[in-house]
């Protein structure tokens, strides 16, 4: 009975593992295959040997490096600005009292549930008038604004748990509000700040809708746009798509496997704390 149980469990786990690995195996196999289209892909993984054509093609014939650079700039700026703006407003919400604080906090809480995507047209009109269409900073502004409502709450809830006696003793020493924010509060709030920085840095890598709407010229494309361009209805360059994808995915995979324990505890903390 015990061994039977164990066998069933092993079979279940192995089957699940196989299904989990299945598509990833074919991505690698396609990335190192000769042909482009999915129909030419050998159904035995790596059945046609190993070939670096697609990587050569990516770096020589396409703007892959440029896409990567653009995406990195957008992600880094989004992350930095979100952290700065959200934590500053969280500090104000957590430590100061003013007339419509309640209304503002409630508005943010309600706004965070609606995805920015619902407001696409208006954002388009706004960027058009600001002459920010087809610019990376326009995209960054859209992302940062979308990040603020939820993350202000997240950081505020964390800062609420930091004892006020800390700021008060600094104030007695003559520290200004800004000094207290940067020297006292931010260092204590580091865990939530790191969490925020990571989450807001990773999200823009694979967003598709806003880059598609905002960025037009070929040299301003991001990775998601570029990769999507390989496998549209019109053409199927699955090989290049796979090669480009694994180059992005590998850093993510390494990062997640190393950091998943920390991530999950932060996830829990972030969600339950409010």
């Amino acid at each position: 009975m015990r061994t039977l149980n164990k066998i069933i469990i092993y079979i279940f786990l192995i089957v699940t593992a196989l299904i989990t690995i299945y598509p990833l195996l074919y991505v690698f196999s396609a990335a190192f295959s000769k042909g482009q289209s999915i129909s030419a892909l050998n159904i035995i993984p790596f059945g046609d040997g190993i070939n670096f054509n697609h990587f050569r093609y990516l770096f020589k014939e396409t703007n892959y490096l440029n896409w990567f650079k653009n995406t990195f700039i957008v992600a880094a700026l989004t992350s930095a600005l979100t952290v700065l703006i959200a934590s500053l407003s969280a500090y104000v919400f957590s430590r100061f009292n003013f007339t419509i604080k309640k209304t503002m906090l409630m508005t943010l809480l309600i706004l965070q549930i609606f995805p920015s995507m619902l407001a696409m047209i208006a954002i388009y009109v706004l960027l058009l008038r600001m002459r920010a269409l087809d610019t990376l900073w326009g995209l960054v502004l859209v992302y940062v604004a979308g990040n603020i409502p939820y993350n202000t709450w997240l950081v505020k809830s964390y800062m609420d748990t930091i004892p006020r006696s800390l700021d008060e003793s600094a104030r007695i020493d003559g520290a200004s509000h800004l000094t207290i924010f940067f020297r006292v509060i931010l260092p204590v709030a580091t865990p939530i700040i790191i969490f925020l920085a990571i989450v807001t840095f990773t999200a823009p890598w694979m967003d598709f809708i806003f880059p598609k709407m905002i960025l037009r010229s070929p040299e301003k494309q991001t990775l998601a746009l570029g990769l999507f361009g390989f496998v549209t209805d019109k053409k199927s360059e699955f090989g290049s798509f796979a090669a480009g994808s694994i180059l992005v995915a590998i850093p993510f995979i390494i990062f997640f496997i190393l950091g998943h324990k920390h991530m999950i505890s932060s996830f829990g903390a972030g969600a339950v704390k409010e």
């Binding site: 703006i85 508005t107 943010l108 706004l111 609606f114 920015s116 619902l118 407001a119 047209i121 208006a122 954002i123 009109v125 706004l126 502004l141 859209v142 940062v144 604004a145 979308g146 603020i148 409502p149």
Partner: peptide
């Protein structure tokens, strides 16, 4: 940012 990129667009 929230007023111009979130609130006004949603009302719009």
């Amino acid at each position: 940012l929230v007023v111009f990129f979130v609130l006004v667009p949603l009302i719009f």
